[in-house]
Every structure is written in structure tokens, then in C-alpha cells.
Amino acid sequence: MRHTISVLVENEFGVLARVAGLFSGRGFNIESLSVAPTLDPAVSRMTIVTCGDERILEQINKQLHKLINTIRVIDFTGQDCVEREMALIKVSAEEDTRAEVLRIADIFRAKVVDVAPRCYTIEVTGTPGKVGAIVELLRPMGIRELVRTGPVVLGRGPKAVEK
């Protein structure tokens, strides 16, 4: 089963390597990982998408906690939350497909952020499912390059995750 986990870590030298090494060393999956500092620059927040059965997820949770630099681990699976991912898609825009590309972008409320003679770069934000859907629709037009950030997630409502 797919799980989205947020990890608050001390923003220290090598902390990303510790987390990534933990996953590779113990044979856990990482589908995606995004990381950046939080409001407090001494703390970074990682969002990791992983999968595994209940036993493996329990180990992932505990092993992440065991790292000295880890402050908190929150598994958002089954919780009410907002999950968003961004993608930049460089797609061919020939005379006969250009209008269709723009129409699809419009439907997904995506933006054209760069225009070249036979190519658009499109920025789209949404759930991983939505990003996947626009990628599938654009694929027949000829996607030249694609980059996805991997999802980030926040719980809904006024309550914030504390350190």
C-alpha cells in the first residue's frame, strides 16, 4: 500500500544521506522524496512516498525515528490532508496539435510557462493522480521532457504539526 510520510529533520549536514541510506540499506522503497527548509530554517521537512505492508511501514516509521536528527515522523495515510505535486512538461506543439495541447492545459488549469517555435513547457499542479492524468493526455502529442517534484502534503484544518 502507498504511504505518504512527512519527516521533520534537523537541517544538518548529511541528513538527507542518512534518510536515503536508511531506505536503501534496509530495502525499503522510495517512490518520491522532496525536501526543503521549513519556517524555522534549522528544521527541514521531507515528504516521502513509499509502499509496503503494515509490518514494513511500522519499521520505516520506527527506523526514521531512530535517526538522531529526526524530530518527527507523520504518516498521512488515511488522514484528511492536502496532497499536491508539481510537474513541468516540455511537449511538442506542432501546427496540428498546438490547439489541443493548450486545450488540455486549460482543462487542467495548467500554465504555459515557456514557448518555443515547436514546443510548449507546461506547469501543472495537483494531486499525483491529476498530474498523471495530464501526462497521459499529453503523451500522444510527444512529451520531450518531464520533471515531477513528487508530492508534498499538509493535514487539513487549523492544527499544525509541532516539532
Partner: peptide, 13 residues
């Protein structure tokens, strides 16, 4: 530090 990361409880540079 990289080599011993998985075999130490923690390490520092």
C-alpha cells in the same frame, strides 16, 4: 562519515 553512516548510531564531521 559516509562509509560508517549505516554502522554507527550517529556520526559527525
Amino acid at each position: 562519515v559516509g562509509i560508517t553512516r549505516p554502522i554507527t548510531k550517529h556520526n559527525y564531521l
